[in-house]
């Protein structure tokens, strides 16, 4: 049984153009999967469906064997403890009027997780490489990279089994991006990760398996190294050709 099982999922707003069509893939327990897509590929919609924020127009999404039903409150509460998300923009993802401690503790409070919340928050901050003394400060006092760490701490504080990342490193500087990718890599030892991004370099550095999404369809799936070295679909080839490379003065 797969942890996340997306089967024949379609999505469209009303009778509008299909945003996702016939989408199927799985994320296994403990696996780190990359989903590469550009704007208009439907990746954001897919994440909203996988988070139970919206219902698919067709097909089913299963988590740990159970069909995801946004209308069922008690099962959703169980689900929310196990699936968390990190967003792209570290500025809009943290409430500017809340202190770091309250931000990171929000899932614990809302999901009524038992235990010592203060200690769990400190453990989460520690896990993402932040000083635990930061709980009394506001988000604006931190840099973009630190803010993204705070957002990750909030996502892992209730020890989810699956972490979804929506372009979680795309807004960061290069060296910060590398450090956050390393952080995700270390988190990948304890949870499954679905890493959605248009940044092929970050996906390649992090994920063993990759899916290529174009206009609501998965056009290529496979082992990351293989897909990147011998791309089969024309879109994958176009995507790879577009990536700026450093190979200066080196002969292939």
């Amino acid at each position: 049984m797969s942890l996340l099982d997306v089967a024949q999922v379609d999505f469209a707003y009303g009778r509008g153009r299909a945003i996702l069509s016939g989408l199927s893939f799985v994320v296994e327990e403990g696996e780190t999967v990359g989903l590469v897509g550009e704007s208009g590929s439907g990746k954001t919609t897919l994440l909203r469906l996988a988070l139970g924020l919206q219902r698919p127009s067709g097909g089913t999404i299963r988590f740990d064997g159970a069909v995801l039903d946004p209308g069922d409150r008690s099962s959703m509460r169980q689900f929310r403890r196990q699936v968390q998300v990190v967003f792209q923009d570290p500025y809009s993802s943290l409430d500017p009027r809340q202190k770091v401690g309250a931000i990171v503790a929000e899932p614990l409070r809302s999901l009524r997780v038992s235990g010592d919340h203060r200690r769990m928050v400190e453990q989460a901050l520690d896990a993402v490489g932040l000083d635990t003394g930061m709980v009394d400060r506001y988000p604006h006092q931190f840099s973009g990279g630190q803010r993204q760490r705070i957002a990750i701490a909030r996502a892992v504080v209730c020890r989810p089994r699956l972490l979804l990342a929506d372009e979680a490193v795309s807004a960061l500087d290069l060296s910060t991006r590398l450090r956050i990718v390393e952080l995700f890599k270390s988190l990948g030892h304890t949870m499954s990760l679905l890493f959605v991004s248009h940044d092929i370099g970050a996906v390649a550095a992090l994920c063993r398996r990759v899916l290529i999404l174009e206009k609501g369809r998965i056009v290529e799936v496979g082992d990351t190294a293989q897909v990147l070295s011998t791309p089969q679909h024309p879109y994958t080839r176009r995507l790879l050709d577009a990536v700026p490379r450093l190979a200066f003065g080196e002969t292939p």
Partner: peptide, 8 residues
């Protein structure tokens, strides 16, 4: 959205 996925 983060609050919603946190079950708030």
């Amino acid at each position: 959205t983060a609050a919603r996925t946190s079950g708030t």
